[in-house]
Design a protein around this nucleic acid. Structure first.
Length: 489
RNA sequence: GGUCGGUUAACCGAGUGGCUAGGUAGCGGUCUGCAAAACCGUUUACGGCGGUUCGAAUCCGCCACCGACCUCCA
């Protein structure tokens, strides 16, 4: 199987030709959400980025196993292996079982992801469903000397690891600097070094989510699940591991260390990271009060939003930026995206009505080549869209009569749009089937107003025609003293 | 303080040592009963200061600002 896809590997910091280990199969693992609150804009970015990659790889003919985890235990409030579990904390606030919290926000996440038209992953494993696998991995790490037990908890020994391997290779951290920058925390310190990270944590008596293990009743460290589950479902070595740039350190760095120490070799061939989202130039954060959930975005129910923005507008907007750039949300920018998307979708409609000519004045094949080149260059969706808009101009010009296309070219153009717009970019036309009931009500109001105007002019021909035609369409109009009402037959 | 990335026109956002990105908005025109759409044309660019070069927005240096992660402080 051939491809010409170059993808930026965060590990080498270069664009590399994508060569799967076992074609036609591709294994891709992407870090999913910790489900302790509503899905927000930040979740949409990796979901759409890796959906695009998933779709494109499938389009190229690969059989992709796309694994995206759900973190439902072990992600603590701060990442220094201290503080409360995020899910447990939420459970305490909402008076729910931790698993109720997980279920609730996992459902919201799935709903939002479907609205954004992202394809479901092939496997969506949960950390709590893989406690045994995680314990087994800890055992291996202890036996090989890369982990140590301390007061019922188990920590990864980074100094030991760094003797043989290179800790910090992904994020560019230098261990000496980490050491010199670290101040010893006071009190009982279970870790040999403060930068060692937890593989297993002993639970306090009041802790809710805990499991038996050889070391204590406790719970797995946050980084461990991804190593355990990626190995389980994708094998000891696999092609792609993705996630947000904010996860590079410490999460992915720790994953590399764990997996490499346990397996004696590198697991992941291509590390791919999407950049972050900002709002009005500021990072999106709860503390800044500019935090927008996807539900709020879709409903417009947020003080920062001037109007609702549809899921496809969000998708289009995210695709209009390259995945490795930050993307800045603002009402103005989103309105621009909304209009642009409309223009694109309208052109697709126009395309379906075009009539071929005997000759062609445009070169569709060249356009098609350029579309593939854009994606092959590190999934450059903004460039792809610019080419598609070139196609939009073609389509409108043909409809206008200023350009011509032959039947073969027309066929290619239709295929091109259906492939790139719908199949690969995953956009869809939202206008059809959208709140038909509401629209019908508004249309009927308009019709009744027109008929009233006709009646006021004693134009009985028009007013009768409206009533009779409506009856033929299955709608009964009932004149009242003031105005009219309608019902279905 | 450390590491990395960024600063492009009204807004978003690509890209590149010399050649139009694209979308949205604005302006002028064609079309149109009016409008919308569409089409044609068009106005504001590459943070600052130096350097390399025949030529830099694109390469190098310094500075400023922004962001991410980390750290420190609280």
């Amino acid at each position: 199987m051939q491809n010409n896809l170059f993808i930026y590997n965060s590990l080498s910091k270069k664009k590399e030709l994508f060569k799967p280990l076992h074609p036609p199969f591709v294994g891709m693992y992407v870090c999913g959400p910790t489900v302790y609150s509503d899905a927000h804009l930040g979740h949409a970015r990796p979901a759409i980025t890796f959906d695009l990659l998933f779709r494109y790889l499938q389009h190229l003919g690969y059989e992709v196993r796309y694994v995206r985890n759900i973190t439902d235990v072990g992600h603590l409030e701060n990442d220094a292996d201290e503080g409360e579990d995020k899910i447990q904390k939420k459970a305490r606030f909402e008076h729910l079982e931790p698993m109720e919290v997980v279920q609730k926000y996992m459902n919201t996440f799935h709903k939002n992801m479907e609205q954004l038209n992202t394809l479901s992953p092939s496997i969506e494993p949960r950390a709590t469903g893989h406690i045994i696998e995680q314990i087994e991995l800890v055992k291996i790490l202890i036996n090989s000397g890369y982990a140590y037990e301390s007061n019922g908890s188990v920590y990864f020994d980074i100094l030991k690891y760094n003797q043989k391997y290179h800790y910090g290779k992904l994020s560019g951290r230098v261990l000496d600097e980490l050491i010199s920058n670290t101040r010893e925390t006071e009190g009982a310190e279970e870790k040999h070094n403060s930068f060692d990270f937890a593989l297993w944590k002993k639970a306090n008596p009041e802790h809710l989510m805990k499991w038996p293990s050889p070391w204590s009743i406790g719970f797995p460290g946050w980084h461990l699940e991804c190593s355990a589950m990626s190995i389980k479902y994708l094998g000891e070595q696999f092609d792609i591991h993705g996630g947000g740039m904010d996860l590079q350190f410490p999460h992915h760095e720790c994953e590399i260390a764990q997996s490499t120490a346990a397996l004696g070799k590198e697991s992941v061939h291509y590390w791919i990271h999407n950049n972050m989202i900002t709002i009005n130039g500021q990072k999106m954060a709860r503390s800044l009060g500019n935090f927008i959930t996807l539900d709020q975005l879709f409903s417009g129910n947020h003080p920062l939003l001037s109007q609702p923005f549809s899921p496809m507008t969000i998708r289009f907007f995210i695709l209009q930026a390259h995945y490795r750039s930050t993307v800045d949300f603002s009402n103005e920018a989103l309105q621009g995206a909304e209009k642009g998307l409309q223009k694109l979708m309208k052109a697709v409609e126009t395309l379906n009505k075009l009539k071929p000519s005997a000759t062609s004045t445009i070169d569709v094949n060249e356009l098609k080549q350029k579309c593939y080149q854009a994606l092959d260059d590190d999934l450059n969706s903004p460039i792809l869209l610019s080419h598609l808009f070139e196609g939009v101009k073609f389509i409108n010009s043909i409809a206008d009569g200023s350009e011509k296309i032959d039947s073969k070219g027309l066929e290619t153009l239709k295929e091109l749009f259906s492939t790139f717009v719908f199949e690969i970019l995953g956009l869809k036309d939202e206008t059809t089937g959208q709140s038909d009931e509401k629209l019908t009500g508004e249309l009927m109001k308009i019709i009744i107003d027109i008929r009233q105007a006709a009646k006021n002019n004693k134009d009985w021909t028009v007013s009768d025609k409206i009533r009779n035609d409506l009856k033929n369409a299955g709608i009964i109009l009932k004149d009242l003293k003031d105005g009219a009402e309608w019902e279905r037959e």
